[in-house]
Amino acid sequence: MRSTLFGLPLAAGLLFCAPVFAQDAPQPSLWRRGADLFDQGKLLATGGVSQVEGAGGGGLANWALISGYGTDNGIGLNGHYTYVGLPDYHLHTMGVAVGLFDRLELSYAWQEFNTRSVGAALGLGQGYTFHQNIFGAKLKLVGDIVYDQDSWMPQISIGLQHKENDRGAVIAFVGGKGSVGTDFYLAASKLFLAQSVLANVTLRETKANQFGILGFGGDKYDDYSTQVETSLAYLFSKDFALGAEFRTKPSNLSIAKEQNGWDIFAAYFLNKNLSLTAAYVDLGNIVIRNHQRGAYVSLQAGL
């Protein structure tokens, strides 16, 4: 009853205003204007691909650019799937990211880490899985990766990745101090266009063990530490880049010495709607298994 009382004047008001709207007939419809926001106005590849935690970047490394192809007047939206196959583990990641006005990026990723036979060896069960939700936000502060070719100013962004792991008991058992953690980072990306080279350096404050898959903080060290992500890519054409990345990781748990990761990647941008990344990745030791090196493939589709 109450809603009807409020609804009636509203409806009357809308009717009253309808002729006013009608006079603006040349104005594009709301739907049209909404669709126009997905302007795909950025240059190919300048939206990057989806890094392993779902942010706009490379593979292991986060970049300063805002995901998607929306310009400062538009929005870019994309989803991705990433698979990492290692000798003793594998990882699936699915996620979505939205880039708002080439200024703010919001992302969500879901990860499933499968321990395969290691799970059985540790008494957790064959194929025991860890899951993680990652909520990310990235804000572009200064610089532009494409236009600032006349200065050394890189594009600089700050961001965070909030991670929630569903295996608190196991994490506690292996010495982890928490199943929830937040990484903070500062990223700088520079395109040396005349040289066709893209360089990135990111500093990350983190407590995460193996990206958070083994929780946050540990019996050996339970505080934030500064980690580095670097990547360097060479652009062979508008739609193809080859590069290498290096990412340091803390070693907080006494049961295993966590090592740094690196990869060599190829990214192919079919168009602004679809990109494919393939990499050879080395994550070093993971818990009781050394030499975790293998294939990384990622597909990103977007508007």
Partner: peptide, 11 residues
């Protein structure tokens, strides 16, 4: 890209 690098700052 060498040409584009010189044109880009005109943005």
């Amino acid at each position: 890209n060498r040409l584009l690098a010189r044109l880009a700052p005109m943005q």
